[in-house]
C-alpha cells in the first residue's frame, strides 16, 4: 500500500500549488514551487510501486481465470485472470469473497484451467461467481482466431 502514500503526497502537493495560485499569498509561493516540483514525480513513484500489486477494481466483463488464491482470514479472493481480448497481458485482482463458495469454484480441477467466469457484486459486499458458457470464436465457421484472443466490438 506504499502507493497510497505517494498518491496522498501528490494530492497534498497539487492542492498547495492550487491554493497558492488562487489565494495569491506571497509566503505560499516558494512552498508551492517546491510542492509542484515534488508533485511532478509522485505519480511516477506511485505507479512504479503499484506494478504487481492486486487491483480491487475487477471489471464486470467475462474473464478467464488462470488461477486463484483465497485468503481465508480476510475473506479475500485473489484472481489471476486473462481479460479475453482486451490485451494479452494477464492481471491480478482482489475481491471480497465468501470462503464457503470457494469450494465450488475450485473443487473440480477443470474449473481452474481456462474457466471463463463473470464476477458480480453479491449480497453483503462480496462477489458471486457466474460461470459463462463461453464459445470460443475459433469454433465458429470462417474464424481462425484463438478463442480468448479474439477482439470484441468494444476493444
Amino acid at each position: 500500500m506504499t502507493y497510497m502514500w505517494f498518491l496522498a503526497a501528490h494530492v497534498g502537493c497539487v492542492l498547495i500549488v492550487l491554493a497558492a495560485v488562487l489565494l495569491k499569498w506571497k509566503r505560499l509561493k516558494p512552498i508551492a514551487v517546491i510542492s509542484g516540483s515534488v508533485a511532478l514525480w509522485m505519480p511516477l513513484m506511485a505507479h512504479l510501486t503499484t506494478l504487481g500489486a492486486p487491483s480491487p477494481y475487477l471489471p464486470a466483463t467475462e474473464v478467464r481465470v488462470i488461477t486463484s488464491d483465497l485468503d481465508e482470514t480476510r475473506n479475500i479472493l485473489y484472481l489471476f485472470v486473462d481479460l479475453l481480448g482486451k490485451d494479452f497481458t494477464p492481471r491480478v485482482y482482489q475481491i471480497p469473497f465468501d470462503p464457503s463458495k470457494f469450494g465450488g469454484l475450485v473443487g473440480n480441477p477443470a474449473y481452474l484451467v481456462d474457466q471463463v467466469l463473470q464476477f458480480q457484486a453479491g449480497i453483503g459486499g462480496t462477489y458471486e461467481a457466474v460461470y459463462i458458457d463461453y464459445v470460443p470464436p475459433d469454433l465458429l465457421k470462417d474464424n481462425m482466431m484463438r478463442g480468448w484472443q479474439a477482439p470484441r466490438a468494444d476493444d
Binding site: Y3, L7, H10, V11, V14, L15, V17, L18, A39, M42, P43, A46, H47, T50, L51, G52, A53, P54, S55, P56, Y57, T89, P90, R91, V92, Y93
Partner: peptide, 16 residues
C-alpha cells in the same frame, strides 16, 4: 492534475 494520476493508478493496478 489532481484526478488524472488517481484514475491512471486504478488502471495500472494488477499489471505485472
Amino acid at each position: 492534475a489532481l484526478l488524472m494520476p488517481l484514475f491512471v493508478t486504478a488502471k495500472i493496478l494488477g499489471y505485472p
